[in-house]
Design a protein around this nucleic acid. Sequence first.
RNA 1: GGGGCGAUGGCGGAAUCGGCAGACGCAACGGACUUAAAAUCCGUCGAUGGUGACAUCGUGAGGGUUCGACCCCCUCUCGCCCCACCA
Length: 930
Amino acid sequence: MAKNETPIYNPAEIEPKWQERWEKDGLYHSDVDASRPKHYALTMLPYPSGDLHIGHWYAMTPPDARARFMRMRGFNVLFPMGFDAFGLPAENAAIKNNIHPKFWTYHNIERMRKQMRTMGSMFDWRREAVSADPEYYRWTQWFFTQLYNHGLAYHKMSPVDWCPNCQTTLAREQVWGEDRHCERCGTPVIKKNLDQWFFRTTKYAEQLLKYEGIDWPERVRTLQTNWIGKSEGAHVTFTTEQGDPLQVFTTRPDTLWGVTFMVLAPEHPLVAKITSAEQKSAVYEYIQQAARQSDIQREATDKEKSGVFTGGYAINPVNNERIPIWIADYVLMTYGTGAIMAVPAHDERDFAFAIKFGLPIIPVIDRPDGVSKSFAFPGSTKEGFAEALKAAGIEFVSQPAGDLGEGLLITLRRVQVQPYIELMQHNLQPDNWNEIVGGRWVFIFSDGIQELDSIEADQAILAKCKAIYPPVSTNRTVMEMLNSLPFYQDVLFHPEYGTMIHSAEFTGTPGDRAKTEVTKWLESRGQGKKSVNYRLRDWLISRQRYWGAPIPMIHCPHCGIVPVPDDQLPVLLPDDVEWKPTGQSPLKLHPTWRFVKCPVCGGEAERDTDTMDTFMCSSWYHLRYLSPHYNQGPFDPKEYAYWMPVDTYTGGIEHATMHLIYTRFFHKAGRDMGIMQGDEPVMQLRNQGMVLGEDFEKMSKSRGNVIAPDELVAAYGADSVRAYIMFFARWDMGAPWSSTGIDGTSRWIRRMWTTLLEPAPGGKADQTVIRNLRRKLHQTVRSVTRDFEQFEFNTIISALMELMNEMIKAKQQGAFGTPAWKEATEIYLKLLAPVATHVTEELWQRLGYPYSIHQSSWPAVDEAAAAEDQITLVVQMNGKVRDRIQVPAAISEEEAKALALASESVQKALAGRQPKQVIYVPGRLINIVG
RNA sequence: GGGGCGAUGGCGGAAUCGGCAGACGCAACGGACUUAAAAUCCGUCGAUGGUGACAUCGUGAGGGUUCGACCCCCUCUCGCCCCACCA
């Protein structure tokens, strides 16, 4: 009985107790306080899907610990929480269970709020924002009208993903798999043209590519940069034979002399006009067929190229060559001008298309030797090639027509840009040509330079092939063989910029100047213009769904599109709506909601019946947290001035190209509208990894590998779960869950509990014990502080475990009850407080410290205590460890070297020889080179 | 096809500036306590050889730079992620 006086650690009792106390005292309220530096720590708000998942804990509790750390370091910390409450899952659940989306959503929010409180985190719930509350979406709508008034929102007809079975549009997240099927019913999605609202994100493309002054992970910056997809090139104007200008975008104006045909998207407006009478039916049929396919089907890379000749021709502005115009679905109306110039010698897609349809690989005119295509070199026709192969000792097997392709070898020597730069980069032996001299070619082979004509060249190249791949087996096709030769591949398509050839007066222009000089020349002739294209599209905002913020616009037959005036916001989402899929926007079917008087002329008008993309709601939630109930604007300017910008933002990498681009766009647009300040909303971004199931698979209900945090809290307590979440993986990487691993952290917390509470004989430890304890203690303060700063949470826990092991040892050696023990106890609890919020508060109280530990300040490092007085000097012989010697930390170089050389194993290894060199790294090692 | 990230014991991971590889924890094994189990405590724990002190090897593979490489450079393999007929 006497032995069991130490109270039992019972998290189920102490955790709710402290949570209530903190709530009651408003311990975590954050208010504007100009006298203190601020720190706005934001973590991505959850969608109220039902239950708090272990992934939520993983995303929220380490940032919570860090926010608490910042707080203890003297910052006035804002760490708010809310719910991204609009969205499709609510509607799906509503349809499935026949309950109202609003009920479903708010029910889940209530449940998740309760679950979040068990985390013991420092959310200031007074600042909670819920995007589906009218007092929230009033301002989402207000932002929409602001964007409209500033010309950043526009309305246009656009194709969207449509599920023909569910009779509704689908969000991008709702379209699954490579065949792009509907998430709910599995039906492949089709495109449908609808009137849509867009935001002009493309206007900010250039600004969004700049990341100056913000500390964001390289990975996210790369993803955003690729997503924005900047291409620099030129618009070049060709002319159709009917006399219409036909503009193309190209990144390679320097290959203009290599154009052999043009391709238009099937939807291109000029198609009808250029199509000849004979080709009309074929063209019409192709357009019909292309329209039936989704973008994804059309864009599938492994798909055979398809296309059809229009019968029309265009004139190449640089050499007046007459070139055929085709249509093909690999050209997209949505990128560039919907028309391309095709240069098979320099573009793989153009090459494949040319091969398939027997189009020339190089322009027929402009041959230095004047030989027409049909009289091409032997190696460039099937028969000639077979002959050349035979001469080289390779048997020609069989080759389907078109596969080998006329001009294959012509391509090799008739590119518009020489590939020598690339060849050198690939470190190939220079088995290739360098330049053409009057119909004969100068080849630089590894065994010397030769000037050859085309026939000789074919044979020489094939001989080289044979040398690289001796006796080629007869069942390899020629194409396979060629493709397996690294230098042929390089030569066939080379995106690098070598010296221009076959390009009239530009021949000889070095690659680094080729593009700009050609572009300048085109500009001077009025045939083209330097130009930049982005892959980024304008942001499509309209959703034909019920559970979202209504778009606050009115369509008036007299005045056109009119925004709802500010004083009439919010446009409330009506509750009495059939949200079931009927093919129409549910708001359109409401008997009265959409009928409204025009705010301008007062006549009969109609509301826009679409709702907004939920990414719109989440683009500004960090501002609503500042003053969630403020009704004079989206946020209180006083709060904005103090808290913004966000100092650290944490969340999953999956938002890199959606939410995080939208948020940056939104902020920059807000800045330009005079609403927000500064160029960026978020200064520092950090991403967490993902928690996998114990089977190393992504957690999912169907796999049955989901870890439920509520059960873990019941079994171990929130403190152990928090600590384990921080410990079991690198936070930015994530890792599979381990149900036994958490026992380790749980044991450690219990061990700490008894170590600090259970009395022991002591108060008389010797100085070495005290010295060692204090050294470890202050070294830990140093490392934990640094790790919190750098989001390295796992090493925080392991450092605290090590310190506890040291304290247990010191306690056994009589340190209990000494001033050093008291210091260690106090500092230990403070270091652990951000992680294990409840147990530290409990022990803090039990050990007689004043409430609350979470208002105490972060410990400082006592550098003298942390310093090592003895160090282990590693003695190496030629980089191999031979000895370790204990020396005073302040040892001089001479003394250290002398000690090292005196070492027995060094003497043995040297065997009487003199060392050639002795490297001394102070405090670490000595390396003797002998 | 393009871009990015990663690879360290049975497992998760550590190694801060190029300087003792494997901290900390899990699992496993041995022991103490117990009628027994749980809990707790003590110990072992990269591979090979050796009773042992110790020796040799060892951070996906190969090469390079360096007195010294998990770390820097080159080539390659595998895995994951993103984009993908973007002109």
